[in-house]
């Protein structure tokens, strides 16, 4: 099964817009691929369940360095480690990306409703997407620090 660009492209576009407008950074997009395991690249991840006519989730996973850089830029602060400010900021980034993507996917089979985002942190943490639903990963870098946007979304039968 290949990557459905109709699904992932709005999330890529939303990621660029959210970080350029709110964090004044221009993300550099790297690879896009289908995920085959539960491993996240990051030290901190924002997670949001997606519902409505679809079921699925979005996970945006950051290394500590990329999370501190982005949230620091959003708030005009300098962060060197993950703290409550950084965790809250990561939740808001997921919210911004999902909210825009929702609007772009409005007239497609992937139109979804958002939920309240959560944050998970810790070295080597894992989060499972819904079983049996393909997960598309878009890799990015900011300032040489990686982060990923993972989208797993399936129209209800």
């Amino acid at each position: 099964m290949g990557v459905d660009v109709k699904l992932i492209n709005p999330f890529i576009s939303a990621t660029n817009t959210a970080l350029e407008m709110m964090a004044m950074v221009k993300p550099e997009r790297k690879k896009v691929y289908l995920k085959t395991n539960n491993v996240l690249i990051g030290d901190i991840s924002g997670v949001m369940g997606l519902s409505g006519e679809v079921s699925g989730s979005i996970i945006v996973s950051f290394t500590a360095a990329s999370a501190c850089l982005i949230v620091g830029n959003m708030l005009g602060q300098t962060y060197t480690e993950i703290n409550d400010d950084v965790k809250d900021g990561i939740q808001e980034i997921v919210n911004l990306i999902a909210g825009q993507a929702k609007t772009m996917l409005k007239d497609t089979e992937y139109h979804f409703q958002v939920s309240i985002p959560t944050c998970i942190s810790g070295k080597g943490h894992q989060v499972n997407h819904q079983k049996g639903v393909p997960c598309v990963v878009a890799e990015f870098e900011v300032g040489g620090h990686p982060f990923t946007v993972e989208v797993s979304l399936s129209p209800k039968a």
Partner: peptide
């Protein structure tokens, strides 16, 4: 706003 980040961004602006 339930996000303290967003409240701070708006307040700063």
């Amino acid at each position: 706003d339930d996000s303290s980040t967003m409240r701070r961004i708006i307040s700063n602006a």
